[in-house]
Amino acid sequence: MATTWKFTAKEIVEKPDLFTSGHRACAGCGPAIALRQIMKATRGPTIVTNATGCMEVVSTIYPYTAWKVPWIHTAFENAAANASGIAAALKAMKRKGRLQEDIDIIAFAGDGGTFDIGIQALSGAAERGHDFLYVLYDNEAYMNTGIQRSGGTPHGASTTTSPAGKVIPGKRQYKKAIADIMVAHEIPYVATASIAYWQDVLMKTRKGLEVEGPAFLHVLAPCPRGWRYDTSKTIEIAQLAVETCIFPLWESTDGQCSLSPQSKIVALKPERKRPVKEYLETQRRFRHLLTPEFESEIDNIQKMTDKRWNKLLRRCNLVSL
C-alpha cells in the first residue's frame, strides 16, 4: 500500500482536537493520550463508538461531552456490533442515494471490552467484514471498576482480583495474544502501537481507516493508578514496554507481517533489547516480583517474552537470534 500521507508535528498540532480537553480522565492517563493521538489521524467525516469503560465514562459525563464527532455508546460487550450497525446504515443510505460522502467509523474499547466480554462481537464483526477501525486501548485491567484483572492483564501483575498474596504472586495467566487472534481472522489490517510513538500511532490509525474492511489496532496505554507509577512516567513506561519486547510493535497488512521501526531496531541490534526486569521495576503492580520468594517469576516473564518475540521474528521472516 502506497502511503501518500505523512504526519508532521506541525500539521498535527494545528489540527483541532476531535477528542477535547475537559474530559475527566486521571492525570497522566495513557488511554486519553491514545484517543487524542488517534483522533488526530482521522481523514474526514468520522463516527465514533465506544464500549463501556474508562474512556466512555470520562469523556461523556452528562451533560458534558469531549467529542466533536458523532459518538455513541450502548454497552460494554458490543463495540464491534455498534460499528457493524453504523456501517450497515451508512451502506444502506449510500445505496439508496441518501448519502454521498464517505464516513469512517472508529470503535474504541478497552482490554476488558475486547479480550474478555467483547471478543464475540468483535470476532463476528471481523468475520462479516464491515468497514471500520477497531481500536483496543489496552491499560491491562478493568481500571474503571477499580483495577480487576482481564485477559489482557500480564502475568505477575497484582490487581484487585489477582492480588499478590503470600502464596500467589499476582495474575497466573499470561496476556492473551489478542492481535494474533485478529490476524487469524484474515482481516486486511492488524497492528500494535504504543502511545510512546505518536507518529506510529497516527500512521497505523490512518492505514486502518484506509483499508477496505475491518482493521484492528492494539494500542498499549499505561494507567498510572492501575499500574501504580508516578503520573509523569506514562510515556516512559509505554516506551520501555516496546524496548523490552514485552509489547513489540508490528503490523500485518493482508497477512504480511512486518516489524515497525521501533521494534525492528531491536531485532537487528539484539543488544538493544532490554531485560524485562527494567520494565517490571517501574510499576508497583509488579513490586512483589522483586522479592526473593517470587523473583523466579521474572525469569518466567523473560522466557515468555522471548518466546513470543522469537515467534514474531519468524512471522516477520527475521531469524530469531
Binding site: A9, K10, V13, E14, F19, H23, A25, C29, G30, W198
Partner: peptide
C-alpha cells in the same frame, strides 16, 4: 512539538 502530542489533556496548544 513532542509535548503537545503526549499531553493527555490537550493542554499544550499551538
Amino acid at each position: 512539538l513532542l509535548c503537545p502530542m503526549i499531553c493527555p489533556d490537550s493542554a499544550i496548544e499551538w
